[in-house]
Design a protein around this nucleic acid. Sequence first.
DNA 1: ATTCTAACA
DNA 2: TGTTAGCA
Length: 142
Amino acid sequence: MEEIHTDMSDTADIMKGTTYTISELAKEFDITPRAIRFYEDQGLISPSRKGRRRVYRERDRVRLKLVLRGKRLGFALSEVKEMFDLYDTAPGETAQLRFLLGKIKDRREMLEQQRQDIEAVLHEMESVEKRAVTVLEEMGEG
DNA sequence: ATTCTAACA
DNA sequence: TGTTAGCA
């Protein structure tokens, strides 16, 4: 899945002004550079440039990590972006957290509904299966 | 060797 | 998002 590099503290990386190339981040998070550029196109990350080349700093790395976490939780990139925009607009504001809670609620409800749907199908399968077995047994006797 | 943009799948 | 082409 995903492993995290915890050598020096992140704060140390920040004060040192550590930067990363797109390939380094891709390797760290086990994704392709293409995916990282895609997230940028979607407005989720905005690395600075050195000429044409993207220069990723700790802030970008953190955002990328959050994007991937959002994906794991089943959120759309657009939803992760909404959260980022809220944070950028009102840092330290409760709006972002309320938004997140709302998203979690929606996501959870969707998953629970899916769970119910799955259970319904499973039960139906069981019913059909029993019926089929019964028919075979009757044929065996007759 | 690596990254980038753009376009198509 | 993956892939590929043509650059720098």
